[in-house]
Every structure is written in C-alpha cells, then in structure tokens.
Design a protein around this nucleic acid. Structure first.
Length: 309
DNA sequence: CCCGGCGCCTGAGGGC
DNA sequence: TGCCCTCAGGCGCCGG
C-alpha cells in the first residue's frame, strides 16, 4: 500500500519513538507474515533482547537495524525488514488483547477502524508496542543478518532513490535508457526507480502532462525533464504532508497524512481537472487503474515544451 | 528476456 | 438487511 511518502513518514515517526528500545517479546495471530526465518519460534528467539539502533527506508521497505548490545556492528547485527504492501501500516501505541481482538488502551486515535487489524505486535522495554496492522495480510516481515541483506539480490536489484540528491536528471535518463513500455508501468517498476506506486505515478504524470500509456522510449528530452521534475516535486510534497490516508494508511501514531488536499487525479474519475476543467478519466494500464486528464495528458502530444530547459 | 496473467487475502462500498 | 459484484496503494511467480 504505502508508497515512498508513506513509508518515509512511517520511518520518521518511528525514529522518534523506538530508537534504543529493546524487543521484550513478539506476538502474532498470523505467523505466516514472517517470511524469514520461516519458523516463528526461531524469529521470536532471535528478536528477543535485540535493541533498535536505526530505522531507515529503502524503496518501500522499512528497515530496523538491530544490535545485541549498545553498539551497532554491521558484521554481527541483524536487520528487521517490513514491507507493508497494500494495506499494512506500522503503529506505536498500547493495546489490550481481549477475546482474540486487540483493543486500544489510552489513545483515542487508535479507535480508527483501519488500525484494528493487528497481526504482529512487538512488545518494547518501555511498555509501548510496535504493531503491524494489515487488513489484507499481504505484508511481509523478514529478519536478516545486516550484511546479508545489504548484499542480497533483491536489495541490489532496486533502482535509485528518487529523492536522493544523486538522483539527477542525468541519472534519470540513464536508468530509462533502453527501457521500453508504457511510462506508467516503467515509473512504477522498483528495479528502475524505487518507491513510486499507483497513486503517486498518476499524480506525477498529471503534473508532467504526460499520458500514462505514452511509450517511454518515445519521450523526448523536454518530456523527460518535466517527468523528472514532477517526480521530485510530487514525492517531496507527499513526504512533507505525511502521505496519503484516504484508505488504509495511517502514521505510526494512528493519525492521517495530509496529501489528500493535493490529490489531483487519483480516485477522481468523473471530477473536473483542476487545471483545465475536463473530466478525469480512469483506464486500466497493466491491470492497474490509471487516472488522468484526457485534455492535459494527450497520448500523441506534439511540441511539448518545459520551462527552464 | 519481456510481457501478461494470476495468486496472495480480506474488507469496503455500491447495486439490487 | 443481505447478497453479489467489483475494487483495492504491491509484488512474486509462472508460462508463452
């Protein structure tokens, strides 16, 4: 579910709460959610007593670097990886388990129904809990030796982080070189660029006035520049506003992100384009919904020019 | 190698 | 109210 802005918001929120905390215990009613190690008992045995030294993000993964003692050593340490997929989100709070259901104790925000699908709960040494709520149970949790994670194929196959300074226009053109396909699908491919999902890709392409089905190999330099600028602009705004919460996603304290006010096309089928007034359309691109303005984002656009180029 | 299709799961919302 | 249908922010796997 959560895309780069939501995962970053999660990481920023968690960093304030869980650094230097130690895992006391872990509970689950869906042990399959832990993919590595496959045996939940083994997962629990390793995780107990581990201290959280760092929380960070790579693509849509939340990663907790753990140590046995006060110091962090990459050679010896473990990393806990959480991918929230479609409907997962990490929460910090207090709950009580009553007849098989977790009920919030204390925080009113946690009465939000989207925060009640708790399938994995870590108990911390300050009496707080780190919980994963996931209605669809698609999320995955993996415990790695840090070194092995950093050297893993799945990690090294990931494309660049679009908000890093090293993601320049040159770099953008480089990663798209020899790539073919519809621009929407290419931008959503985490092995080409990390972190862009179905919501933000529609918003980025609206911003860039590019049709989602435009072939990426046919984009000219001006169009590429506009898309590049739009990626930076939209994702930066998404992070700044704490992500999008019209569906499942919530911040670690259970509250909603504020990107909704900036949502121009996603889930706005039939509504007026805020730029030109034309009705927003929805089509399927690679079996996923794409929202766009058929007036601003025409497939066979000619003479598109970007400013400052 | 590339692409499309399906699977994993369950809940929400709309039509009747 | 209930039933049935569609849809859902991700991604891995499989087969053509």
């Amino acid at each position: 579910m959560p895309e780069l802005p939501e995962v970053q918001t999660t990481v920023d929120g968690l960093s304030k709460k869980v650094l230097k905390r130690t895992f006391i215990d872990v509970w689950s009613d869906w042990e399959k959610i832990v993919k590595k190690p496959k045996n939940f008992g083994e997962f629990k045995r390793i995780i107990k007593g581990k201290k959280i030294q760092k929380v960070w993000r790579r693509a849509k993964n939340v990663i907790f670097d753990l140590s046995d003692g006060p110091a962090l050593s990459h050679a010896e340490g473990y990393s806990l990886l959480v991918h929230q997929k479609m409907t997962g989100h990490l929460l910090i709070g207090n709950w009580k388990l009553e007849i098989g259901n977790w009920v919030p104790s204390g925080s009113g925000l946690l009465n939000d129904p989207y925060n009640r699908f708790l399938h994995l709960v870590f108990f911390l040494d300050n009496k707080e809990m780190l919980a994963l709520s996931d209605a669809r149970k698609f999320a995955k949790v993996e415990l790695w030796k840090t070194e092995e994670l950093l050297n893993s194929e799945e990690f090294n196959n990931l494309g660049p982080e679009p908000l890093e300074d090293s993601f320049t226009f040159i770099k953008f053109k480089e990663v798209l070189k020899n790539k073919k396909g519809k621009v929407k699908q290419v931008l959503m491919n985490p092995e080409i660029i990390a972190g862009i999902g179905n919501i933000y890709v529609s918003e980025i392409l609206w911003q860039a006035k590019t049709h989602p089905e435009k072939r990426v190999e046919k984009l000219n330099s001006s169009e590429l520049k506009l898309i590049y600028q739009s990626i930076k602009k939209v994702l930066t705004l998404g992070v700044k506003l704490g992500g999008e919460s019209f569906s499942d996603y919530r911040k670690p304290d259970g509250s909603k992100g504020d990107f909704d006010t900036e949502r121009k096309v996603y889930k706005r089928e039939g509504q007026k384009c805020s730029r030109c007034g034309e009705k927003i359309k929805r089509i399927k691109v690679g079996q996923r919904s794409a929202f766009f303005c058929p007036h601003c984002q025409i497939l066979h656009a000619k003479n598109i020019k970007s400013k400052n180029y």
